[in-house]
Computed example of a mutant assay.
Amino acid sequence: MDVDLDARTVRVRVAFMERSSGGLVLGPPKSKAGRATVGIPQSIIPILREHMDTYVKDEPGSLMFPGAKGGPIRRSGFNSRTRWVDVVSDMCLPGLHFHDLRHTGNMLAAESGAGLKDLMARMGHDNVRAAMIYQHAVRGADEAIANAIDRQLAARDDDEGDEAAGALVLAG
């Protein structure tokens, strides 16, 4: 994954897969559609910039969300490494799972009015059935999606605060 905060994009090229043996393998995403360049809403750029300045090494190939020793975070260590339970409690969102953030981001994207094809590209879906859960999409609309999410977050920030709203989109 390549993050370009100036261009406001995330480029997904590879993913870590956890093997049943416990090992991690870096390879292509699960589907061709998983390889994508996705727009980042302007409203979360400052949060990402602060995160990168604090936690991400200034070296090629550095991870955006490194584990304790600088490697990838394993699924089994996610809750303790990220203090997920504490964060969810602080946000007064009991029962919120990390994957729910992807669903929320996809719902916000669908509310932008984008067509089905663009939503599929943004979500990394290669089948219509999965993307239909969230609705509509149109090619070239990814920047419009990011801008629409910005507008929604700005409206919600007045009620919820910057950190909670930014966290909801980050995983989208």
Rank of each mutant, 00 (worst) to 15 (best):
S76G: 06
S31P: 12
A164K: 09
M52L: 06
A109D: 00
N106E: 06
F65A: 06
F16Y: 13
A114C: 15
V169Y: 01
T82I: 07
Y55N: 15
H125Y: 03
I145K: 09
L93S: 05
N147F: 07
I73R: 05
Q135Y: 04
V56R: 05
M17Q: 15
R11V: 14
G22D: 02
E143V: 15
M120I: 05
M123S: 08
V10D: 04
G172P: 03
I149T: 02
R83D: 10
R83Q: 11
A15Q: 08
L168I: 03
N127T: 13
E18G: 07
M64F: 12
S21L: 08
G77H: 12
D158G: 15
R81T: 12
P29Q: 14
E18K: 11
K69H: 15
L119W: 02
S62G: 11
A7N: 10
K69D: 15
D162T: 14
A7P: 04
V3Y: 00
S76C: 10
R74K: 09
P72K: 07
A164G: 07
S43W: 00
T54H: 12
K32C: 13
G61T: 07
A164N: 05
P72E: 13
A137W: 01
Q152M: 02
N79H: 07
D4M: 07
M123E: 06
I40A: 01
I45Q: 05
F78W: 12
A171G: 09
P29C: 15
S76E: 13
R83C: 09
G61R: 05
R35V: 14
E59G: 11
N147M: 12
A171Q: 12
A110D: 06
R129D: 14
G95T: 05
H125T: 01
N79W: 07
D4I: 08
K69A: 15
P41R: 02
M107L: 09
G22S: 04
C92S: 15
G39P: 02
A167V: 08
D162K: 14
A7C: 09
D90T: 04
S62K: 11
F16D: 05
G172F: 02
W84G: 00
N106Y: 03
A121I: 06
